[in-house]
Every structure is written in C-alpha cells, then in structure tokens.
C-alpha cells in the first residue's frame, strides 16, 4: 500500500499530529437523552490525532446515540464538542452553520455505517460511490477521479474490474470495504465507525480488521469506533470507554480495561465473553 496517494495522506496527518499536542476533539458534558437512562449522559473525553477510541457496552447502552451526537448528526441536549479544524481554529460543531457541518462530514470526517446501504448509494457504480466525495470537495476532472477510484479499490482489496459495477452486486464484506474507500478518498482526519464488522462472517471480519488496522496505522487516522465485540476492540482501539445505561462507567487503555477491569459492569462484560 506504499503509493504516492497513501504517502500524501500519511504526511498530512503526521504533520498535524506533530503540531503540538492539541486534541482533535474535546467533548465536555455531552448529553442526549430520549428517556431516563436511554441515550448518553455527561460524556467527557479528549481525542488526540492518531488515536483510536473504542466505545463498548451492551445493546441499548447508548453507544450509537453517542456516536451520532459526536459525528454532527444528532443535536445534543447539553454539552459541547470542540473540533480543532485543519486551519487551526477550534469550534463547537453544533455552533457551526449547517453547511459547514455538512462540509466536514463530506471531507475532513468520514462515517462508516454498520449497514453498507446506509453509507453507500446502491444503485450507482462503485467508482461513482468513491468519486462522489471527491467531487464534493471540488474535483472535476473525470480521468483523475477514476484513477483515484481505482487506486482506492485496490487499497481495500476489491478487484479493479468491478469499478463500474453497482455495490448491490457486491458481497457484504466488499460493500463494507467500498464504504471505507468512499470515506477515505478525501483524506479525512477523523472517522466514525458503527459496528463496521457487525454483519460479516468471521473470515471476512478478520480480513476487514486487518485492513482497518493497516489503514489506521499508515494514514495516522483518528477513529471513534462503536462495537459490542471486545475482540474487535482489542485489535483496533488504543483506548476504550465502557458504557452502561447511557453513562460511561470506565475508560482507559484498551488492554488495561480488558485485562484488569475495575468496574463491576466491565468485569461482567469481560468475563461473559466466550473464547473458542
């Protein structure tokens, strides 16, 4: 994966991670409740460039609500999310204009959904799915867009011959990889992922995890990933937040949380995992 395109993204993100140690996101008192205990409550953390933060917890613990709120898709009831922009200024994402928020989601940020149909346009070609985001950031040259599209298909291990096929003809694993390519094509700094390996069988899951690990390492991406699978969290995340009934009950270094959990709920979660 050592081509010029990758190197450029890597260099850009390395530079920004060297620029003093400024958090990319500063989250303070973030609350979004649908009902008492339903949603997320009083969440605080900093995310630094190049860090992968995992959010774990059982179904209904508020993981997805938190992710939607963090990724500018769901207005919180209270609290703030400060984003350190590429240009250097720090702004609360819910105080930005709607158009600026949309622009962020199309360029600096990416969202990988659990179900590829939520993140892909199923009835246009794979190439167009990748190209769409490039066009959204101002690329107009068809030849260039197609070339970049081919490079990204290769980077996510999809046969280049499939560039003109629609994603509905792809397998679940391929769709998920296409979704990742679509997001990474604009050189994002921050990616949000909701159970990216959720619906895949284990062999496909392992392949996707390996791909994600390499992309995160080579591109110095910052990632916030929601998963209920602790093995996935261990492989991908540097840090974990454990959620229960909308609250973060424990957070820290991934292997510390999994190997020496302190909170009763985390202990229960870790000890409930079946190991084959």
């Amino acid at each position: 994966m050592n081509n010029a395109m990758m190197d450029a993204v890597q260099a850009a993100n390395r530079d920004s991670s060297m620029q003093a140690e400024q958090p990319l996101l500063t989250v303070d008192g973030l609350t979004k409740l649908y009902a008492p205990g339903k949603g997320c409550m009083d969440v605080n953390f900093n995310l630094y460039p190049g860090e992968v933060l995992g959010i774990v917890g059982e179904s209904g613990s508020g993981k997805t609500t938190l992710l939607e709120t963090l990724s500018a898709r769901l207005q919180p009831d209270r609290g703030s999310i400060l984003y350190h922009q590429k240009e250097g200024a720090v702004a609360d994402i819910y105080e930005m204009t709607e158009s600026r928020r949309r622009q962020l989601l199309r360029s600096d940020w990416g969202v990988v959904h659990q179900h590829p149909r939520d993140g892909l346009r199923m009835n246009v070609s794979a190439g167009a799915n990748i190209g769409e985001r490039l066009m959204a950031v101002g690329n107009r040259h068809y030849g260039d867009i197609r070339k970049v599209g081919l490079e990204w298909l290769k980077a996510v291990e999809i046969d280049e011959n499939r560039i003109d096929d629609q994603p509905r003809t792809f397998s679940g694993g391929m769709q998920q990889r296409l979704q990742i390519a679509r997001n990474l094509v604009t050189n994002p700094r921050l990616i949000f992922m909701d159970e990216p390996t959720g619906g895949l069988d284990v062999s496909v899951q392992a392949r996707l995890l390996d791909l994600l690990r390499n992309l995160v390492m080579e591109l110095q991406l910052s990632v916030i990933i929601v998963t209920h699978d602790l093995a996935v969290a261990r492989l991908l995340a540097d840090r974990l937040m454990v959620m229960r009934r909308g609250k973060v009950v424990e957070q820290g270094l991934t292997d510390q949380i999994l190997d020496d959990p302190q909170h009763p709920y985390t202990q229960l979660l870790v000890s409930s995992v079946l190991t084959p």
Binding site: G252, L253, Q256, D260, Q262
Partner: peptide, 9 residues
C-alpha cells in the same frame, strides 16, 4: 510485570 507495562492498574 503487567503493572510495569500499565497493563494492570
């Protein structure tokens, strides 16, 4: 040993 590596707290 694990504490020295911050694997245990």
């Amino acid at each position: 040993m694990r504490s020295l590596y911050a694997n245990y707290k």
